[in-house]
Computed example of a mutant assay.
Amino acid sequence: MADAAERPWISWCTSSTLFEEWMRLRAEGVRPAVVPAEQAVDAGYLTARGFKEVVRPE
Score class of each variant (00 low, 15 high):
residue 36 P to L: 10
residue 39 Q to W: 14
residue 22 W to K: 07
residue 40 A to G: 03
residue 24 R to N: 06
residue 46 L to Y: 11
residue 15 S to G: 15
residue 33 A to F: 08
residue 7 R to W: 13
residue 26 R to N: 08
residue 47 T to K: 13
residue 7 R to Y: 14
residue 41 V to H: 14
residue 23 M to P: 01
residue 34 V to K: 04
residue 18 L to D: 03
residue 22 W to S: 04
residue 14 T to G: 03
residue 40 A to D: 03
residue 28 E to Q: 15
residue 12 W to S: 07
residue 16 S to L: 13
residue 30 V to F: 07
residue 7 R to P: 00
residue 11 S to G: 07
residue 43 A to L: 12
residue 42 D to G: 08
residue 38 E to P: 03
residue 22 W to F: 13
residue 21 E to G: 05
residue 20 E to I: 02
residue 40 A to Y: 08
residue 10 I to D: 10
residue 43 A to G: 07
residue 45 Y to W: 15
residue 15 S to E: 10
residue 13 C to L: 09
residue 24 R to P: 00
residue 48 A to F: 05
residue 25 L to S: 00
residue 48 A to Y: 06
residue 37 A to H: 09
residue 28 E to R: 14
residue 19 F to L: 13
residue 11 S to D: 14
residue 31 R to P: 02
residue 25 L to W: 01
residue 9 W to T: 05
residue 30 V to L: 03
residue 19 F to R: 13
residue 20 E to R: 15
residue 46 L to M: 13
residue 38 E to I: 08
residue 36 P to H: 09
residue 9 W to R: 02
residue 7 R to C: 08
residue 45 Y to I: 14
residue 31 R to Y: 05
residue 45 Y to L: 06
residue 23 M to N: 15
residue 27 A to W: 05
residue 25 L to E: 03
residue 24 R to W: 04
residue 40 A to H: 07
residue 16 S to H: 11
residue 13 C to E: 10
residue 40 A to I: 05
residue 31 R to W: 06
residue 45 Y to Q: 04
residue 18 L to K: 04
residue 29 G to L: 02
residue 16 S to C: 05
residue 41 V to K: 15
residue 45 Y to H: 15
residue 27 A to G: 07
residue 40 A to E: 03
residue 8 P to G: 01
residue 13 C to N: 04
residue 27 A to Q: 14
residue 36 P to V: 08
residue 28 E to F: 06
residue 9 W to C: 06
residue 26 R to K: 14
residue 21 E to Q: 12
residue 15 S to D: 10
residue 11 S to H: 10
residue 29 G to R: 01
residue 34 V to S: 07
residue 38 E to A: 07
residue 43 A to Y: 03
residue 11 S to F: 09
residue 38 E to Q: 11
residue 22 W to G: 01
residue 33 A to T: 02
residue 25 L to G: 00
